[in-house]
C-alpha cells in the first residue's frame, strides 16, 4: 500500500511537470471571442424573427390602431 502511494506520487509529480507554464496561442483568444460575437449577433437576429418580432409587430399594430381611432 505504501509502495502504491509512492508510485502514484512519482507518476503525479512527473505528469504534472509536463504541463508547460505558457499561454495558449494569442490568436486563439481573438478567434474564440469573434465566434462568441457572431453567435450573439445570430441570437439577436433569431430573436427578431421569433419573440421580439412578434412583440414588435404587436406594438406596431397597436400604434396604427391608436392612430386610426384618433383620426376617426
Amino acid at each position: 500500500m505504501k509502495n502504491d502511494n509512492k508510485i502514484k506520487a512519482n507518476l503525479e509529480e512527473q505528469f504534472k511537470q509536463l504541463i508547460p507554464d505558457e499561454n495558449a496561442p494569442e490568436e486563439l483568444k481573438k478567434e474564440v471571442f469573434n465566434t462568441i460575437d457572431t453567435l450573439n449577433l445570430l441570437g439577436d437576429i433569431a430573436d427578431l424573427f421569433t419573440s421580439k418580432f412578434t412583440q414588435t409587430k404587436a406594438t406596431f399594430l397597436d400604434l396604427t390602431q391608436n392612430d386610426d381611432s384618433e383620426e376617426q
Binding site: 509536463l18 504541463i19 499561454n23 495558449a24 496561442p25 486563439l28 478567434e31 474564440v32 465566434t35
Partner: peptide
C-alpha cells in the same frame, strides 16, 4: 484557455489541430 490548449496538444500532438479543438 492554456490548460485546455495544452491538454489538447498533449493528447493529439499537433499544434494546429489543438488550436481548433481548444477553440
Amino acid at each position: 484557455s492554456s490548460k485546455v490548449y495544452f491538454k489538447c496538444l498533449g493528447i493529439v500532438g499537433n499544434k494546429e489541430t489543438s488550436k481548433d479543438l481548444a477553440h
